[in-house]
Design a protein around this nucleic acid. Sequence first.
DNA 1: CGCCTGTGGTGCACCGATTTACCACGTAGG
DNA 2: CCTACGTGGTAAATCGGTGCACCACAGGCG
Lengths: 351, 351
Amino acid sequence: MTTPTTPRKPRGSGRPTISDVAALAGVSPGAVSKVFNGTGRISEATAERIREAARKLSWRPNAAAIALRTARAQAIGLVLSSDTKVPGVGAGNMDFISGIESVLSPREYGLLLNIFISGQHDENHFYRTLAERQRMDGIILTNSMVGDTRPELMSRLGLPAVLVGAPWKPGAIEYVDADPPGAGIAETVDHLVGLGHERIAFVSGPKDFVLPVLRREAFVQRLADHGRQPHSVIAVEYSPARAAEETTALLAGANPPTAILYGTDTMAIAGMRTIQAAGLRVPDDISVVGFEGLTLGEWVDPPLTTVQRFAFQRGRAAAAKLLTLLGETVEEPVPLERPALVVRGSTAPPP
Amino acid sequence: MTTPTTPRKPRGSGRPTISDVAALAGVSPGAVSKVFNGTGRISEATAERIREAARKLSWRPNAAAIALRTARAQAIGLVLSSDTKVPGVGAGNMDFISGIESVLSPREYGLLLNIFISGQHDENHFYRTLAERQRMDGIILTNSMVGDTRPELMSRLGLPAVLVGAPWKPGAIEYVDADPPGAGIAETVDHLVGLGHERIAFVSGPKDFVLPVLRREAFVQRLADHGRQPHSVIAVEYSPARAAEETTALLAGANPPTAILYGTDTMAIAGMRTIQAAGLRVPDDISVVGFEGLTLGEWVDPPLTTVQRFAFQRGRAAAAKLLTLLGETVEEPVPLERPALVVRGSTAPPP
DNA sequence: CGCCTGTGGTGCACCGATTTACCACGTAGG
DNA sequence: CCTACGTGGTAAATCGGTGCACCACAGGCG
């Protein structure tokens, strides 16, 4: 009695394998594989027996085994930056992620989230690790930067990548962009000019990122189209506190603006507060416009006029593009809605 | 010349394997494995040669191969709910995720993000798939619900899990919770009572979730400690619009409250706006308190008094607990800071 | 000298799937 | 009768690591 009478199965992890399913269905493992992948020829009767066996054992192919054998991880990566200059806390990020997931999950693709902390992580090492471990088949990059080296890095690493937003140098990387340059800006400028504003200022995002750069260019350009010049164009971190400081400086000027456009809703709200604290009224004395379209904007006083962006759609588009790059067939064209101006209560004719 | 003169290497994916490294270092693959895992005995001289070879080829062990062989995916899952009732858009989510990553990334663990869409996904099927594919070694669950069946489901599936927040039924699942029940509530009640408020209302989160339930209990309890009764306790979705509606109803009452506590900062901001729109002043006529500690709260008028929560720490604690469950040694105790009342400008003595 | 022990590795089975090559069995055509 | 072919599968190699069993060799000791 030293050896037990059931040396049948070691039962490693306890979970059934394809062999267990095959045994139960009375076929070979290869047959099971074929049924579940639609490859090879298996009679319908046998196929049904196999499916039934799999159901009974509640078996699903082991992801690691597939990844190893087929050299496809069936997962993509997403890199978000954690940086004081980035609107990382933006609620939009969650919608963006939901958009990505909405494309991935029907295809059983996984989403690997990675936070890049500038200053703490070395960019080269960070991305090399991601590529070399082969945990993901492709990657979605955000926060397109001025002088971004990641496009070249990614192609050197052989990791398919999609950049969200306009790239610094076109051609080096695939990307999706709903801001053909600075959409929403034109509408906003038209709106303000139409109200009669002469002195319009733009407290926009930092110099390091492509998006705010393009927006500033579009801002200046559109004013020029109207035969005007900007009151001022300011580049500053995506921070309410910094927005407030700049607003104070603007108000202290000799000839303050009658309308201020901010890089984000959060900045705009901080700006409004600063204006009001200075004893001025929004929109009576100064009009304010934000950027993003947070729900919260409806609940400040006055309700914030803003440029609505569509984070969910952006996520969908990025994921769809990456999957296409990976050879997956993605039927939908994934429409990318352009940012649209939502006029609420914070804009009015100048005094 | 039909066959090329270099039939050496098929070069599957192009990436080097452990054998390439071994060949370059003049050792067996097993030796390489030992060096990189610190197992077995390899002389320092040989080890250095191997490391050098790996560096030269910029090789890293293939994640899928390791996962298959060791039956550990070196990744954990995170499930976030997408539900109208959930403050999913909460900025706190991103901090929470950052906290998780701060524990995972030093250990080269991956984070797999999954969005659960109630109504669209079947809970049972959703979690079964996650477990059976064995892509993750454990899972972090959020949004503890009343009557939550996931604790049992997880243990049935054999997937180690950590719940963030107090569980509905204790004992069924591991969890981390910084709200020993309703921390922050007591402070808030004390604060308001200390200011002289007699009629305090609580517009809190939905009935389905454990957190708001516990908060309501704590609210009532603490008032009782002071020998008082709540003006009213309301359960409502985490939505600014709903908060506004309830606020309107409260104001229309015969004897309206002099202070209102809201389930989130967003709700509180919407509440303030409603109060102001009704011609009343905050905090002169009615005091308002939020829950979360959004930066934005500093920039509304008046600055919002709120209960600061620490999403980053929560993420760290959850990840640390899960890794411990997985047998990983996590040195730090991971201190979980209790929510703390931050008094800003939206609270004052009653009129 | 023979034996034991420790050092520094090697060799090979194995994890759980996929995939290629091949085979058994009819059946039809020449 | 022999061959060709289509059907419905099986067997085995393979992906890239890990880890156990084992082994060669040198040195120490009685």
